[in-house]
């Protein structure tokens, strides 16, 4: 009896928390006219995918989606590749300044974007790459790299030193030991880090707002918001459909790779 009551309470709280997102999905499949019913209907009287169709074929949504995918993939690949080598160096090598560097990484991980964004904006203008996806990839490394480096460093600290030592005694060079032994061990950590970096880039808003102002280079975040602002009267069903579509990659990651997400969390900012 107590169990049932507790379960009921717990699930009520869970559903209240999830309600905004559930409401988002429901709204996105309601016909336009049903949206402005007073009082609103909870379950749609009629389910329509009209908004999704319009979103995909009558708005630049697909361009934004493509931009977001290119942007997030490039940032993730670049950052994770560089950070994996860097983290390996921070964990397994000894050289002057190594500890300072690790502290600096943590420091930059906390740095507010608004401080960096104006000089970065000037830099992009100066480099002549403003208003392009490239400028965003460069800018995104400023928050993704410290993050990935810190995360991977914690993962790699969890790999015993003896493994690398054994590989060295067994005749491997340091680079061979890295590829033969460290890299396979770090793989779950690399996957976690990639997912987090991807999500961070996918969700980023401020840099995209400042650095890009043409639809051809806009990612989803600023793109969808510009649809909201530009349209004469706000089409909520369209925006909800866009929100659902934007969250699809996250839902996929969530459903398939959740264990990597929670693992990354433990290693990230919370624990050393």
């Amino acid at each position: 009896m107590k169990r049932v009551a507790f379960n009921l309470m717990a699930w009520t709280i869970v559903l209240v928390t999830a309600f905004p997102l559930i409401w988002m999905v429901i709204t996105s499949v309601k016909p336009q006219f049903e949206l402005f019913r007073i009082p609103p209907t909870f379950w749609p009287e009629e389910i329509t995918f009209e908004h999704y169709r319009r979103l995909l074929w009558e708005t630049p949504f697909l361009t934004f989606m493509r931009n977001s995918l290119i942007l997030s993939f490039s940032t993730t690949v670049l950052v994770v590749a560089v950070a994996t080598l860097g983290a390996h160096s921070l964990v397994r090598f000894r050289y002057p300044g190594r500890e300072r560097l690790a502290q600096l990484v943590l420091f930059t991980y906390l740095l507010p974007s608004v401080v960096l964004i104006l000089p970065l904006y000037l830099m992009m203008v100066w480099l002549g790459v403003a208003n392009s996806l490239l400028s965003l990839v460069i800018a995104y490394t400023s928050f993704a790299l410290p993050y990935a480096l810190w995360l991977l460093r914690s993962f790699m600290q969890g790999i015993p030193d003896d493994l690398e030592s054994a590989a060295l005694v067994d005749g491997a060079t340091r680079m061979e030991a890295f590829f033969d032994v460290i890299l396979p061990q770090a793989l779950p950590g690399i996957i976690s880090t990639s997912l987090f970096t991807f999500i961070l880039s996918w969700n980023e808003y401020l840099y995209a707002l400042v650095l890009v102002n043409t639809d051809s280079a806009r990612p989803l975040t600023t793109g969808v918001m510009s649809m909201l602002v530009s349209s004469f009267n706000i089409e909520w069903s369209l925006l909800m459909a866009a929100s659902v579509m934007m969250s699809v990659p996250l839902i996929i990651i969530f459903a398939v790779l959740q264990k990597y997400l929670t693992r990354g969390f433990g290693a990230g900012g919370v624990k050393g």
Partner: peptide, 30 residues
């Protein structure tokens, strides 16, 4: 239950804001 609770954190701020502004809508908000 865990996934549902964690989801708001991973969803884009843009999505979160759109959804909440729709919830908060003075005329048609639920």
């Amino acid at each position: 239950a865990r996934s549902l609770i964690l989801f708001p954190y991973f969803v884009s701020t843009v999505v979160a804001v759109l959804v909440w502004r729709w919830l908060f809508n003075d005329l048609y908000g639920i």
